[in-house]
């Protein structure tokens, strides 16, 4: 019993790792966006790539950008929204 459980757990872990790998690669492939060193809040064309139909900020699990980049992009989008360069909501 114990052995079986262990094997099962191991399989589960392996599956999870495999899934994570697949997800990561597909996410990375989904958006092939060159991210500039300076993320400019006035660069509407660049920022628009990170706002899907509803006007929300794309989560980084989908865009595949780094945490730091996501932070900077989110801040830039929020600034652009204040100046009506980007919408708060689209309907």
């Amino acid at each position: 019993m114990d052995n079986e459980k262990k094997i099962n757990m191991q399989e589960n872990v392996e599956n999870e790792i495999n899934q994570a790998n697949i997800q990561r690669t597909t996410a990375r492939n989904r958006l092939q966006i060159e991210i500039p060193e300076y993320i400019d809040w006035k660069d509407v064309k660049f920022l628009e790539q990170f706002i899907p139909e509803r006007g929300k900020i794309m989560p980084r699990r989908i865009s595949g950008v780094s945490a730091r980049e996501q932070r900077l992009i989110a801040r830039a989008i929020k600034r652009a929204r204040i100046m009506a360069l980007l919408p708060f909501v689209k309907d």
Partner: peptide, 22 residues
Amino acid sequence: MRFITVRVDEDRKAAEKIRAKR
């Protein structure tokens, strides 16, 4: 109708660092 003020010197410096790293 509206205005915004953004301080950019520090962010630009940070960007310069990343550029050098890359």
